[in-house]
């Protein structure tokens, strides 16, 4: 084992947090980063495992998993199930994860019609064809919120949940306190 791989063992005295973005816009992760300098306090309390912040690609055993976005393709299902298998506490973060949000608006249409609108009939489409490379995850017929696929322990609504909502949630949870939000921190938009 190289020095590089040994250099960053996950500390046992910290809770391990992983995050993932499924079918979403990454806005919830941006909102998490909006806790600004409090992230220095946060990394005293938690160690980040798989997350776009560390760029680690596989999820190990975690205390807390935060999932942004809804379930719109086969890869989303796989990642979500991996997180469920590895995280003690799994949290649906943001409108898409909680109720499907904007991506679920495509449920109003047939999937075939959506693909044809974008790749066949769309304005300015060159060489119209529906992409079928085996590397591209297959789209699901319908977009689903997370709780329709795996068991979810906590829900943080909002598009996105504010930085203060993340901060209140994580600090209360880590401290073992009852999670309680003031009125202004819970909204669906």
């Amino acid at each position: 084992m190289s020095d590089l791989q040994q250099a960053a063992p996950l500390r046992k005295d910290k809770l391990i947090v992983s995050t993932a973005a499924l079918c979403g816009c990454f806005g919830c992760h941006m909102s998490l980063l909006d806790i600004d300098e409090r992230i220095l306090d946060l990394v005293e309390l938690v160690e980040f495992d798989r997350t776009p912040i560390t760029d680690i690609k596989t999820v190990g055993k975690c205390d807390i998993g935060l999932i942004e976005g809804s379930v719109g393709n086969a890869e989303n299902v796989e990642v979500l199930r991996e997180f469920r298998n590895h995280c003690d506490i799994l949290v649906a973060v943001g409108a898409c994860a909680v109720n499907g949000g904007i991506p679920a608006m495509r449920n109003q249409f047939e999937l075939k019609d959506c693909l044809e609108e974008v790749y066949i009939h769309g304005i300015g489409v060159d060489n119209p064809h529906i992409p079928n490379d085996v590397e591209i995850p297959l789209l699901l017929d319908k977009v689903h919120p997370l709780h329709e696929v795996v068991r979810i322990d906590y829900f943080l609504p909002g598009c996105p949940p504010s930085a203060d909502t993340f901060w209140t949630f994580l600090t209360n949870l880590i401290a073992g306190k009852e999670i309680s939000f003031p009125y202004s921190l819970i909204h669906y938009d």
Binding site: N99, G100, A104, H147, E148, I152, Y154, F155
Partner: peptide, 9 residues
């Protein structure tokens, strides 16, 4: 905080 049930869409 959540819709709890399965969406009809």
């Amino acid at each position: 905080l959540s819709p709890h049930f399965t969406h009809f869409f």
